Simulated scan of single mutants.
Amino acid sequence: MNTIFKHAICIVALAAASVLTPAPAAAQDAVSLDSEVQVAKDVDGVTTYVAPEQVFPGDRLKFVTRYDNSGAEPAEDFVITNPLPGAVSLAEDGDFLVSVDGGESFGRLSGRTVAAEDGTQRPAELSDVTHVRWIIPSIAPGESGEAIFFAQVK
């Protein structure tokens, strides 16, 4: 299987892999999620994001998870967690929490550490991130929004 095809499979799989980790409440069930991956295309110096037909190493990707509360009650402390497939690296830090240990623990990138080759701890880098997470304090009835992060194909 060629590398481009492997990357495309991983990216499509991630679009379907957004994980909702709700707090126990009926309002959580009324929130729906929809995910999509887009690839950056530069045309005449203007960057737009389009559905990927093929991706190549170095391509910048935009991962979007849309949420919508169709219920009658607010959804409180709503959690969205997105795993990063091995074929991509986080491209930039954002307004979200990250995990560098396979989704076991989350925090700001600036506070994360990983083991260096010599066994000491070093500050985590974008390439160490395995998951991103948003905790949305409250999603009112009828409210919708997006959680977005950017990655780069390895």
Rank of each mutant, 00 (worst) to 15 (best):
3 T>D: 15
77 D>Y: 07
33 L>C: 00
150 F>V: 04
144 S>P: 07
85 P>I: 03
141 P>Q: 03
102 G>V: 11
46 V>Q: 13
77 D>C: 07
127 S>D: 02
153 V>L: 07
91 A>E: 03
139 I>F: 02
123 P>Y: 00
23 A>E: 13
61 L>T: 07
35 S>A: 15
59 D>V: 08
115 A>E: 12
118 D>L: 13
21 T>Y: 03
119 G>W: 08
73 E>I: 06
74 P>S: 08
42 D>W: 12
33 L>K: 02
98 V>H: 13
47 T>V: 14
146 E>S: 11
140 A>K: 10
100 V>M: 06
30 A>N: 12
61 L>Y: 02
81 T>G: 01
89 S>W: 10
136 I>C: 05
60 R>K: 14
138 S>L: 07
21 T>H: 06
115 A>I: 01
109 L>K: 04
22 P>M: 03
77 D>N: 11
99 S>I: 10
94 G>L: 03
92 E>A: 01
46 V>H: 06
79 V>R: 06
148 I>H: 01
30 A>M: 10
23 A>M: 14
43 V>G: 01
81 T>H: 00
17 A>I: 00
64 V>C: 03
15 A>T: 08
25 A>K: 15
68 D>P: 10
153 V>H: 08
149 F>R: 04
67 Y>R: 09
122 R>T: 00
106 F>D: 12
39 V>S: 04
74 P>H: 10
50 V>M: 08
8 A>L: 15
146 E>D: 07
4 I>H: 11
116 A>M: 04
93 D>W: 02
53 E>W: 13
102 G>Q: 13
148 I>G: 00
18 S>I: 07
19 V>T: 09
140 A>S: 08
142 G>D: 00
26 A>V: 15
39 V>G: 07
16 A>D: 08
64 V>T: 13
11 I>S: 07
58 G>I: 12
108 R>G: 07
137 P>N: 12
74 P>V: 05
154 K>S: 07
106 F>R: 14
44 D>A: 15
154 K>G: 03
154 K>C: 05
130 T>H: 04
105 S>Q: 09
76 E>S: 10
69 N>D: 03
36 E>C: 06
92 E>W: 00
98 V>K: 15
132 V>F: 00
144 S>Q: 12
104 E>M: 10
30 A>P: 03
53 E>A: 12
110 S>H: 10
53 E>C: 02
58 G>H: 07
76 E>D: 05
115 A>K: 02
41 K>A: 14
5 F>K: 15
41 K>F: 05
119 G>Q: 06
56 F>D: 06
42 D>I: 01
125 E>D: 05
107 G>K: 13
20 L>I: 11
99 S>C: 11
114 V>Y: 00
144 S>M: 06
14 L>D: 06
152 Q>D: 01
100 V>F: 04
91 A>F: 05
66 R>K: 14
60 R>N: 11
125 E>Q: 11
60 R>G: 02
19 V>M: 11
101 D>W: 05
14 L>C: 11
70 S>T: 15
151 A>E: 01
123 P>M: 02
24 P>T: 14
3 T>F: 14
77 D>T: 03
89 S>V: 09
101 D>T: 12
44 D>E: 14
12 V>I: 02
88 V>W: 03
83 P>C: 02
3 T>A: 13
87 A>K: 09
85 P>F: 02
78 F>D: 01
